[in-house]
Write a protein that binds this DNA or RNA. Structure first.
Lengths: 316, 316
DNA sequence: AGTGTTTGTCTAATACCTGTCTAAGAATCT
DNA sequence: AGATTCTTAGACAGGTATTAGACAAACACT
């Protein structure tokens, strides 16, 4: 934390704390009187002054009481204990407790899944587009698109989602990602990236997300879609004078062929063109892929920071 | 800042400061007397002369007190502390609002302006759409759309931008905002807002931004465009069973008519429907508008936090 | 069911904070 | 010169705090 000590100075009056915590002034005083839940300092006149920390504590307390905890039990606990409790509660709710799931992103993900379950493709699309525009591309990809795809995938694996539903949802996500890619059609000079999926790999969502990420970073992206033979990939990269080539790998099955394809691609590309490999199965083939001259990227986040370092054009 | 020192010279009399801050002269004097909130220099005759800095300080103080801070506590704080407090408040309000005045927002603004100067409407539109999708709606409105509109306005005022260029840019911004509004077409139940501009007020950009802001917050927005007579506004609000009505006011000229229109609107609306007034000229008519039963909102940010508090549906 | 605890809400009396107003005089403007 | 705006100092009222205590709904446990 880079906060100077002034951050801790108590200076928030009751009404503001009430607004920021969602607790009425009455409740704030009752909690303090009965459980010494916080002990704000006072003005000379005796009015309460809460600190930033008090507010954080109170907000957590409210969320926990909302979830059913008794304030009387919660009150004596130190802050880190509250944090632990809340994390536990969230984890219990959430399947895979992603990063700090915001209200609104949670809502978007759940709405999309609900709509998918009732085959309402239009609604899925609306929800996703809205989320994309509201959150901005990077946050959308990390916090909405990825979880939606993952949860649909899980549901399909465990049978709670039918193949048809999975296909529909996938088609919609693909459409939305395609739309985003279109928004970023670049006119001027920029770094160029070619994105595809190696032969036999038919899941293109990962590749599309990579493409959109790069486009959002200002790259000129040539998206070639799934299942592309190395020779054609190399040809496209040469023709577009690409600065980098990205491949998405979802299945580890058929690894030998895959590695061979990587090797062939690497061999066909100029030395200074980076070859990036990502996707669900990328970790399983990491060593072999790196031996074949590819860079393995685990997450979209990693991809973004890598691509930023790569950018010679320094496009803003 | 490129302002020469003359900008710091105190030269603003009370009346003007009152208009620019939305504080009555009485309040200005009371704050000074009781808390030495600022210490304006005086004319030989003893009348107050405020500096640009004083005004900034006062505006911040007003916004913070509006949010619930106590003026008595705020008064002794230095300016940077006020800025910090305001940022903290914004951060607490805004969920994903990354207000990092990024390289990329600057770049978007500059590109849009350059494109406007060379009459490249398509490019302006592309840049704006891309920025909207990249940053998310709230950040886009605050950091791109608003600056672009302001700078075009300034340019027009000082002659560096032609009327034609101004018109073109305005048309494009309007188109993009309209597109965003379309993205947010809401299906389910939601809070309803009616947005328009009072008679004689032909600049609709502010109204559109308000509309988009509300839509992004999950409201169902009925956008009625500029120059709407009170009777029709009231009719629309009733038919849509709106929870709130927002008006944007850019010129202070014709204030009496404007206030009359506000009064009429207020009279026609049910008690529990909020009447909000914002826009460049809103501070100048603050007192009269409030007397007419309207709530004055200074910034888009303020509008967002207000609307969130208003939302009875608590739509996420 | 009965009993006791927990907890949010409310009241009443009091005190503080803060916006508004008054009155009389001085400065400024036209 | 007269109208207007600004000045100071003080008064005032209403909103917002404060306390202590009462009450009832919700819950847990016989």
């Amino acid at each position: 934390m880079n906060e100077p000590s002034c951050f801790r100075l108590p200076r928030y009056p009751v009404r503001l704390v009430s607004l920021r915590t969602g607790l009425t002034p009455h409740v704030l005083r009752a909690w303090e009187r009965r459980y010494q839940v916080v002990t704000p300092t006072r003005t000379e006149g005796g009015q309460r002054l809460y600190s930033e920390l008090d507010i954080e504590r109170l907000r957590r307390l409210r969320r926990l009481t909302d979830r059913g905890h008794a304030i009387g039990r919660l009150a004596p606990l130190p802050l880190d204990e509250l944090i632990r409790l809340e994390d536990a509660a969230v984890e219990a709710d959430e399947r895979p407790g992603e990063l700090a799931h915001d209200e609104s992103t949670r809502f978007a993900v759940e709405s999309a899944l609900r709509a998918a379950r009732r085959f309402d493709a239009a609604e899925v699309q609306t929800v996703l587009e809205r989320a994309a525009v509201t959150l901005g591309v990077p946050a959308f990809l990390d916090q909405v698109a990825t979880p939606v795809v993952e949860r649909i995938g899980h549901g399909w694996a465990e049978g709670s989602v039918s193949i048809a539903q999975e296909h529909m949802a996938t088609a919609v996500v693909r459409r939305v990602l395609g739309w985003l890619l279109g928004v970023y059609e670049v006119s001027g000079p920029a770094d160029r990236l070619v994105v595809a999926t190696p032969p036999r790999q038919v899941h293109e969502l990962g590749a599309l997300m990579v493409a959109v990420s790069a486009a959002a970073e200002g790259w000129k992206v040539t998206y070639l879609g799934p299942d592309l033979p190395p020779a054609d990939l190399v040809g496209a990269a040469r023709q577009t004078e690409a600065n980098a080539v990205a491949l998405s790998v979802v299945y580890a099955a058929g690894t030998p062929d895959l590695i061979a394809a990587l090797r062939e691609t690497r061999a066909g590309l100029p030395r200074d063109v980076a070859l990036l490999v990502g996707g669900a199965a990328s970790l399983q083939i990491k060593q072999q892929a790196e031996a074949a001259g590819a860079q393995v990227v685990d997450t979209l986040l990693e991809f973004r920071s890598l691509i930023r370092r790569l950018a010679p054009e320094k496009a803003p």
